[in-house]
Nucleic acid binder design. Structure first.
Lengths: 136, 136
DNA sequence: AGTTGACTTAAAGTCAACTTTAAGTTGTAC
DNA sequence: GTACAACTTAAAGTTGACTTTAAGTCAACT
């Protein structure tokens, strides 16, 4: 089950130049060539979906390479994964508070969100300060 | 209640150059000077906390300026806020699935996550494809 | 055998979000 | 009144994540 790069582009919506860039970074891998053209295993589509979610979560390509890259196999490093999951959990909590804050701000009559007690409370809730990795 | 830029740096952990940059972009505002030194209203600390959460949520500084900037007051645009909240909600769902996926991967005995049915299921769950804004 | 279209590479370019640098200014402390 | 630390500005530099460009290659079709 191998896909031509063109098919991967069409199915994933990811640009060819991006696929080459990801491969160069060790994030994905091509399994051969047809002439010059890269061929990918079909599971690259899952991988790309995962990469997109990971980016959305604020992980850098380097972090994603650590977690799911092709050439890091020896070190799956389960502690690291758990640690990331915990980071993510905290992050999700803050984002949930932000979501509630936005929803509230959308109906609150105050001209300035910062004058609103409910918004303030949500904000406090959201900012249990914990510094995330520098890369963004 | 005004704070010297140095105090803001100390309390918020945000670099002075970043504060100047944010001000230049209209994201925050200083209320005056002491000599050359910028003075900020104490509420800038809440604002910065909010900005950090927003960045974590994947919003660009420009989007944040639209949402909470100082010079956009006429257009609070409640529909836009609600829309962002809904984006965020979808995002949170994907991130929750990713968190579960990471946790599972950390205990799953499979050498390759992609060979694991549970991981696959979480992945499918996480990737209800919806393209987010280009800026990241 | 020649044209076409989808790819290839290496290198340079772009963009957001900052940071660094160089040279200058100020309030306070001595 | 002078030294010093903490700021100031404008401009250039950096980083991550790509994209664009220019010149070339190949398989397939005519």
């Amino acid at each position: 089950m191998s896909l031509d790069i063109g098919e991967v582009v069409r199915e994933s919506g990811v640009a060819a130049s991006t696929l080459r860039y990801y491969e160069e970074k060790g994030l994905i891998r091509s399994i051969g060539r047809n002439g010059l053209r890269r061929q990918f295993n079909a599971d690259v589509l899952d991988k790309l979906a995962l990469i997109n979610i990971g980016k959305e979560a604020g992980f850098s390509l380097e972090e994603l390479t650590d977690m799911f890259g092709e050439y890091k196999r020896p070190a799956i490093d389960r502690d690291k994964l758990l640690h990331k999951a915990n980071d993510l959990e905290r992050s999700i909590k803050r984002l949930s508070a932000l979501r509630d804050g936005l929803r509230h701000a959308a109906k609150c009559p105050q001209k300035n969100h910062f004058d609103c007690a409910t918004f303030q409370r949500l904000l406090k809730l959201a900012s249990k300060r914990k510094k995330r990795s520098a890369t963004r």
